[in-house]
Measured scan of single mutants.
Amino acid sequence: KFNKELSVAGREIVTLPNLNDPQKKAFIFSLWDDPSQSANLLAEAKKLNDAQAPK
């Protein structure tokens, strides 16, 4: 279960257009550290992506 959630969340995070590479890497490392938090980490990444969207 975690492997699928981890890969789905990881793929989504790397495609978020408004995150820079260090931010993406930080989220990916957090996913590896605790795969059970993949849904929460993906939600946080999406929030940050939205907040950094060009206005």
Rank of each mutant, 00 (worst) to 15 (best):
K1G: 12
A26D: 05
T15Q: 14
D21F: 11
A9C: 08
N18T: 01
G10M: 15
L31G: 01
N49R: 02
S7D: 09
E12L: 13
F29Y: 10
L48S: 02
A39K: 09
D21K: 09
A39T: 07
A45R: 01
L48P: 00
F2K: 07
L41C: 05
S30Q: 14
V14P: 02
N49V: 00
A43H: 05
W32F: 10
I13M: 03
K1S: 12
N40I: 11
N40G: 08
P54Q: 10
W32I: 09
Q23T: 04
P22F: 15
V8K: 13
N40W: 14
A26G: 08
A39N: 08
K24N: 02
A39S: 09
A51N: 06
A43F: 08
N3Q: 11
N40T: 14
L16M: 11
A45K: 01
A45V: 00
E5A: 12
L19M: 01
L41T: 06
R11I: 10
N49C: 04
T15W: 11
R11F: 12
A53S: 10
I28T: 02
L19F: 00
V14S: 12
N49T: 03
Q37T: 05
G10F: 15
D21C: 15
K24A: 02
S30A: 14
A53Y: 05
P54D: 08
S36E: 08
D21P: 11
S7E: 13
N20R: 09
L42G: 01
A9I: 15
F27L: 05
L19W: 01
I28K: 01
N18I: 01
I13H: 01
A53R: 09
V14E: 13
A39G: 07
K1Q: 12
V14D: 09
Q52L: 08
I28C: 12
A43V: 08
P35Q: 03
Q52R: 04
D50Y: 06
L19T: 00
I13Y: 01
Q23C: 05
N40C: 13
K47E: 07
K1H: 11
E5F: 11
K55G: 11
L42Q: 03
P17D: 04
L6A: 14
P54V: 09
K55L: 13
S30G: 06
T15I: 07
N20P: 03
P22N: 15
K4H: 12
A53H: 05
R11V: 07
K24S: 01
E5L: 12
S38Y: 14
G10W: 15
F29L: 12
A45P: 02
E5V: 11
S36Q: 06
T15V: 08
A53I: 06
V14L: 15
L31Y: 00
E5T: 10
A26M: 11
F27I: 02
K24F: 04
K4N: 11
F29I: 08
E5I: 12
P35A: 04
T15M: 14
L16T: 01
S7Y: 14
S30K: 14
Q23A: 01
P17S: 06
F29R: 11
K25C: 15
K24W: 04
K55T: 10
A39H: 09
N20H: 08
R11K: 09
N20D: 09
A43S: 07
K24C: 10
E44N: 05
L42E: 03
N3F: 14
D34G: 02
S36K: 09
R11C: 15
A26H: 11
N18C: 08
L6E: 04
F27A: 00
L42K: 02
D50S: 08
S7H: 12
K46P: 01
N49D: 04
V14K: 06
L48V: 06
K4F: 10
R11M: 12
P17N: 05
A45I: 02
K47D: 06
V8P: 11
L42M: 05
K4V: 13
F29E: 06
S38V: 15
E44W: 11
S36M: 07
L6I: 10
P22K: 15
Q23R: 01
D50G: 06
D50A: 12
K4Y: 13
K55Y: 10
A43D: 07
L48R: 04
D50N: 07
N49E: 02
S36A: 08
K47Y: 06
A53G: 08
K24M: 03
F29S: 07
F29V: 06
A51G: 04
S36G: 09
K46Q: 08
L16V: 00
F27P: 00
D50P: 01
P54C: 13
R11Y: 13
S7M: 14
L42C: 03
D34T: 07
A51P: 01
S36F: 06
N20A: 09
S30R: 15
R11L: 13
K25Q: 13
D21M: 11
S38R: 05
K47V: 07
D33T: 13
V14T: 08
K55P: 11
K1F: 13
D33M: 14
D33P: 00
A45L: 01
I13V: 03
N18S: 03
S36V: 05
F29A: 07
A51F: 09
G10L: 15
A39D: 10
P22A: 15
K55C: 13
F29M: 12
K24L: 04
F2G: 08
G10D: 04
K1T: 11
K47R: 12
A51H: 07
W32M: 10
A9L: 12
R11G: 05
F27H: 00
L48D: 01
V14C: 15
T15G: 13
A43N: 08
F2Q: 09
Q37H: 05
E5Y: 11
D34V: 04
N18W: 15
K24T: 02
K24Y: 03
A9V: 15
G10T: 15
Q52D: 02
K46G: 02
N49P: 00
P17G: 05
A51V: 07
A43Q: 10
S36P: 04
K55E: 10
N49H: 00
L19N: 00
L41S: 01
E44H: 05
L16W: 03
K25F: 14
N3D: 14
K4M: 11
F29T: 08
K4D: 10
S7G: 09
P22W: 15
Q52G: 04
L31Q: 01
N20C: 09
A45D: 02
N40A: 13
K55A: 11
L42D: 01
V14N: 12
D33A: 14
A51Y: 09
L6M: 10
L16H: 03
K1D: 10
T15Y: 07
S30D: 05
W32E: 07
E44P: 00
N40S: 11
D50W: 07
A51K: 10
W32Y: 12
P22C: 15
N18D: 01
S36R: 07
K47F: 06
D21W: 15
K25M: 14
K47Q: 08
L31C: 06
D34F: 05
N49G: 01
L6D: 04
A45E: 00
K24P: 00
P35E: 04
A43C: 10
L6P: 04
N49K: 01
V8F: 11
I28A: 01
K47H: 07
A39P: 05
L41H: 03
S7N: 08
K24D: 01
D34N: 11
K47I: 08
P17V: 06
T15S: 13
K47T: 07
S36T: 10
K4T: 12
N3L: 14
E12A: 10
Q37E: 09
P17R: 08
V8G: 08
I13E: 02
L41G: 02
S38F: 14
G10S: 14
N18Q: 03
N49Y: 02
D50R: 08
P17W: 03
L6F: 07
A9N: 04
P54E: 08
S7A: 13
E44L: 12
A45Y: 03
S38L: 14
S7L: 15
A51M: 13
A39F: 09
E44G: 04
D21S: 07
L6R: 05
W32C: 14
